[in-house]
Simulated scan of single mutants.
Amino acid sequence: MSFRAEKITKSYGDLMVLKDLDFSVEKNEVLAIVGPSGVGKSTLLKCIVRLEEQDSGEFYLNDVPVDDTNRTKIGLVFQSSSLFQHLNVMDNLLIAVRYHKIYPEEEGVKKAEELLKEFGMLEKKKAYPSELSGGQKQRIAIIRALLLKPLVLCFDEPTSSLDQENKNLLIDIIQKIKKDHAIIVVSHDSEFIEKVSDHTVILGKV
């Protein structure tokens, strides 16, 4: 399984953020995208998952251009966990699964419980986001992304609100899930990047 970017360019008016950017990442690899604030790291992630559209260039998943037919094969774990506060953990996990009809209902619940158990969170399935720590919220966000069966999983500044214990747990989780996924991580955390990344793309001012 492979994901690659070819000649990605993105501007906002006269401000060019990304110019002719090329990179690739394979299954069982972690690609880190680094650089100072304002060079387009988060913009690049938004283009990858089609929250925004690049001006030119193309993303490819297994040599097929990424479009609305295969975009759900690319997941994104946001910087904030983006959980719905009025829903408990299980309903947060299943809302996108139900919308996209990824599994029959019983199978979706079973798969969610399996991942909750694997991530040490099964006892929290009826809890609400306000009852969870920052690290627990992030694990729920990762499980939610995994339930959509992505081939590529992107993380936007995943350590920004984590203490060292939860950073170490996140490192273990990424090392575990990369066996079945290509991972793209945007981060300012150089210690974290050094521990998880196999390759690095450095963005600078265009």
Rank of each mutant, 00 (worst) to 15 (best):
V17N: 07
I8Y: 06
M16F: 11
G135E: 00
S133N: 08
D67K: 13
N28R: 08
A5N: 07
K7N: 15
I142L: 00
I8P: 02
E29G: 01
S24V: 01
L115D: 11
G38A: 13
D67F: 14
E191Q: 14
F23H: 03
I143Q: 05
V39P: 10
G135I: 07
M90Q: 12
T72Q: 15
G75H: 13
M90E: 12
V186I: 05
L93T: 08
L18R: 11
H100L: 12
E106D: 14
G108R: 06
H86M: 13
V97S: 07
I95G: 04
F23S: 02
L146V: 04
E131C: 04
I193L: 13
I140G: 05
A32G: 00
S81F: 13
I202F: 04
N92C: 09
L44S: 01
A5M: 05
E113A: 04
F59N: 13
I74A: 08
L147Y: 01
I142E: 01
T200C: 03
I174K: 00
F119R: 03
S2F: 05
V17Y: 09
E52N: 15
V185R: 04
L94S: 06
Q79I: 08
L93G: 12
A182G: 07
G135Q: 00
I102T: 14
I184C: 00
N166V: 07
L18N: 09
V185E: 01
Q136S: 01
S187H: 02
L146D: 01
L115W: 13
E58Y: 13
R71T: 11
E123G: 00
K117M: 10
D180W: 05
L132H: 01
S11N: 05
V196C: 02
I74N: 07
K178R: 04
I193V: 15
K195A: 03
V97D: 06
D63H: 14
I48D: 08
M1H: 12
K7L: 09
A5K: 03
L94C: 06
Q138C: 02
R50Y: 13
E191S: 15
M1L: 12
Y103K: 12
L116V: 03
F192V: 00
K178C: 08
V109R: 14
E157C: 08
Y103S: 11
I173Q: 03
G75T: 11
A112K: 05
K176M: 14
H181D: 11
S42M: 12
F78G: 08
I33M: 02
R144Y: 04
I193D: 07
G13W: 10
C47L: 11
T72L: 15
F78A: 05
K126Q: 14
K126H: 14
N70F: 12
Q175W: 09
Q164D: 11
I74Q: 09
S133C: 10
I140C: 02
K73I: 12
A5T: 04
S161L: 12
L169W: 01
Y128P: 11
M16L: 10
D68I: 09
P104S: 11
I177E: 09
Q85Y: 09
H188M: 07
